[in-house]
Design a protein around this nucleic acid. Structure first.
Lengths: 219, 219
DNA sequence: GCAAAAGTGTTCGGTATACACCCATGC
DNA sequence: GCATGGGTGTATACCGAACACTTTTGC
């Protein structure tokens, strides 16, 4: 039970890590997680584990990645880890324990065990789903300007996306809604940006990439 | 450790099930699987388990689906199952034990535990990947006509796909290659069909559905 | 007025689909 | 020759990317 908890912050993607105080891999940085309890399924369990590091209510999305099971992944008796992707909106800065901090994904500290691989799996899942779902809602504040959203998507994807197309694509898919309100312009002037929100608070597939599509009438 | 082993057969999608001889869920049909050994990772383990039911060499593809962990999914002590999708080409008919047979997915027998849910997860994964990868290679024989491939895709997807578009899309993506050879026409005449093969023997993403694409120069 | 930032209109290229048409065989 | 199934050419619709242009503010 391990989670790669990610957020977009200051133009970069960050992952939540805690520093191990004891061997093995003393002082290395590890993903939060813990053992599965007898009366919970894996998703409930990882949310419980994460509650100790991040306020659960700050977690905007959690999903299962895969089981990591290489017999040599940790020293000693083999441990199978079910890995998760967790997301935190960019406008909340949850309280975290003293041993725990955010680290830029592109400048990682020394990590424990196979946790860097798991972090990469989390990042790759996020990037893929940003393209064909409305998963951006989990990284963005409840309301935001297109510029802010552009920064978030650019940080998460690792390259610049154009605000024009971002707005158009998400709007056409019905994922984005104007609130009708605007926000004052910045210090250097400019037109005051409009505020938008995501239409749905939950994960939806907005681009059913299905080629070989079923005939329009079919279910 | 459970696997939904699927194949396309006679226009339908089938799953490999064995009939339980003992309680719980006596006489119900279950997915093949078993316990994880200490010295193997989950993928190696499921291949070993499946070797008892299906000749491993007949398995054209295996991939992890997810962990199923509901505390009530099996009676008694909770068991976490890591589920897999397995695929068998349509031209091989592996020897299977006496208690084991293929069942049409759209006409399932009484199944044990949550195995029908897992079967559906396997089917959904297959359908999704047929659209944006070359995964068809795992369902098709090594060489095939477009008509045969059309039948396989139609069976797997659950609706009719047009041979014209199937050929064109897979060819444009570079997934399909003509062998240059043809096969005699059928009993009712007609032009002798050409034989094709898949370009790559392994899974490749042929349609990077990425919207918000990176600038062409980027990695 | 001018610079700056936001947002819209328009064009273009690529891809999937639909459908008409041509091809090669058995009888 | 004709029916049958295989394969190609062409037209259409849609979507995302790029870029020019307009709008609205601060100074």
């Amino acid at each position: 039970m391990l989670a790669g908890v990610l957020r977009a912050h200051e133009g970069r993607l960050q992952v939540l890590l805690w520093q191990r105080a004891k061997p093995p891999h003393e002082n290395r940085w590890a993903l939060p997680g813990g053992r599965l309890g007898d009366d919970e399924d894996v998703e409930r369990s990882i949310r419980r584990q994460l509650a100790e590091k991040v306020d659960v209510h700050k977690l905007s999305h959690v999903e299962q990645l895969a089981a990591f099971s290489d017999p040599g992944r940790v020293p000693g008796r083999r441990v199978v880890a079910t890995a998760f992707l967790g997301l935190v909106p960019s406008d909340v800065d949850p309280e975290v324990p003293a041993d725990t901090t955010w680290h830029a994904l592109d400048d990682p500290p020394p990590t424990a065990f196979d946790h860097e691989r798991i972090t990469h799996a989390a990042r790759d899942r996020l990037r893929a789903k940003l393209s064909y779902t409305n998963l951006g809602f989990a990284l963005a504040p409840a309301e935001f300007t297109i510029s802010e959203l552009r920064r978030i998507y650019s940080a998460a994807l690792g390259y610049q996306v154009a605000a024009t197309n971002l707005q158009r694509v998400l709007t056409r898919r019905g994922a984005l809604q104007p609130t009708g309100r605007t926000v004052p312009a910045g210090p250097s002037g400019g037109r005051p940006p409009a505020l938008f929100r995501f239409t749905s608070p939950g994960l939806e597939i907005t681009d059913p990439f299905a080629v070989f599509r079923p005939p329009p009438g079919a279910s």
